[in-house]
Design a protein around this nucleic acid. Structure first.
Lengths: 175, 175
DNA sequence: GGGAAAGTTGAACACGTGTTCCAACTCGGT
DNA sequence: ACCGAGTTGGAACACGTGTTCAACTTTCCC
C-alpha cells in the first residue's frame, strides 16, 4: 500500500502478497471496504494509544511531533484518507478516529499551552492541534512524494522551536 | 472529480459529462495521465498567479490564508495529490507546482516575517510556509470529509490571529 | 472413526477500464 | 465539385476488478 498506493490494493493483489488466493481474502473480509476499515482500525487503535502516551510524557509537544511526523505512520494515514474519498464506510471510520485524536489533543492542550508560555486566547487549542497535525502531514506528504520543498529546513526549524518550547516549560515548572 | 473522487474520472465518464464519447477524449488527451496533468496545470497556473497577488497585497498573510483555505480550490488539489500517488507524470507536475509555490512563499516570508513582528530565526520561512499550507489543507480536508474536528474553532482562531498580526504590521509600518 | 465446522481453491460472472483501429463525418479551401 | 485535413463515433481488445458458487481439504470435537 505504501509502495504502490491504495489503488493497487485489490483482493487479488493482497492475496498474492500473502500467498493465498482471492476468494480467501473475501472469506475474512467480505468486502474490500472491510479490509480497509480493518487496516485503519488496527493502525488507529495503536496510534491513539501512542498519542495518549506522548501527550502524557515528559515532553508532550516534542513527543506528539515525533509521532505525527513519523514518515511511515503518517504516510499510511495519508493513503487511507485518500482511499476514504470514495469509500463511505472507511470515511466514517477515519472521521471517528480523527475526532477522537483531535479531542485528546485539544483536551491536553488546554492545560498545556500555558505551561509552554503560549496564550490560549491567542492560540486556541483547536488551532494549534490542527496546525501541528497539518504541518506534519504536509511535510510527510511532500517527503514521500519526493517534492523538494525545503522539508529539511522546516523540520530543523520545528526541532529548534520544540527545543525552545520544552525548555520554557521546564523553566516554568521549576520556577 | 470533487463529487466522486478522482477514481471516478475515466475516459468514458468525462466523455459522458461533456456529451461526447470516449475515443474523442483520447484524441485530445492521448493518455488519462495527460488529462490529469492538464487539469493540474490549468489550476496550478491560475493559483500561482493568485498567490503572487496575495503575497503582494495589502495584507499578505491574510490574503494567503484566504487563498489557501478556500474549500473548493484546496479540495481539488487534495484530490489531485491523491491521484498523483500512482501517476508518475502527475506526481512530477505536482512537485513542480509545489516547489514553485513554496519558493514564492518563502521568498516573500523572509522579508515579511519581521514586519509581522515574528523572529525569522525562531520561525524560519520554510516552517511557516509549510505550517500555513498544512493547516489549510488539514482544515479543508476535514471539512469536505465532514469530520467534526472543531474546524470552526480553528478557523475562528486563525482569523483572530490574522487580525492581530496584520494590525501589528500596520502599526510597525506606521511607526 | 465419523461428522460437522472451518478453511481453501478453481472457475466463472458481469462490469468498467485504457486504449486502438477503422470507418464515417464535417468543413474549409481551391 | 472535390479533396484532404481535422474531427467524431462504433466496435472491439485485453485486462483487472469485486464478488459468488460449488467443490475440495483440513481441523477439531464427540
Amino acid at each position: 500500500m505504501l509502495q504502490d498506493g491504495y489503488a493497487a490494493v485489490s483482493s487479488r493483489s493482497v492475496a498474492a502478497k500473502v500467498g493465498i488466493n482471492a476468494p480467501l481474502v473475501h472469506y475474512y473480509f467480505p468486502t474490500i471496504d472491510d479490509l480497509f476499515v480493518a487496516v485503519l482500525r488496527r493502525r488507529a487503535d495503536a496510534n491513539v494509544e501512542r498519542m495518549a502516551e506522548a501527550l502524557a510524557s515528559e515532553e508532550p509537544l516534542r513527543a506528539w511531533w515525533r509521532l505525527a511526523s513519523h514518515p511511515r505512520g503518517s504516510a499510511l494515514f495519508v493513503e487511507l484518507i485518500a482511499a476514504a474519498n470514495h469509500r463511505p464506510a472507511l470515511q466514517a471510520a477515519v472521521g471517528d478516529y480523527a475526532r477522537e485524536v483531535r479531542r485528546m489533543q485539544m483536551d491536553r492542550l488546554s492545560s498545556l499551552l500555558g505551561e509552554y508560555g503560549l496564550d490560549p486566547v491567542e492560540l486556541p487549542p483547536a488551532l494549534v492541534a490542527a496546525a501541528v497535525q497539518g504541518l506534519a502531514f504536509a511535510l510527510v506528504a511532500d517527503q514521500v512524494a519526493g517534492h523538494d520543498t525545503a522539508t529539511d529546513e522546516a523540520h530543523a526549524g520545528m526541532d529548534r522551536l520544540l527545543d525552545r518550547l520544552e525548555a520554557r516549560r521546564r523553566a516554568g515548572s521549576a520556577g
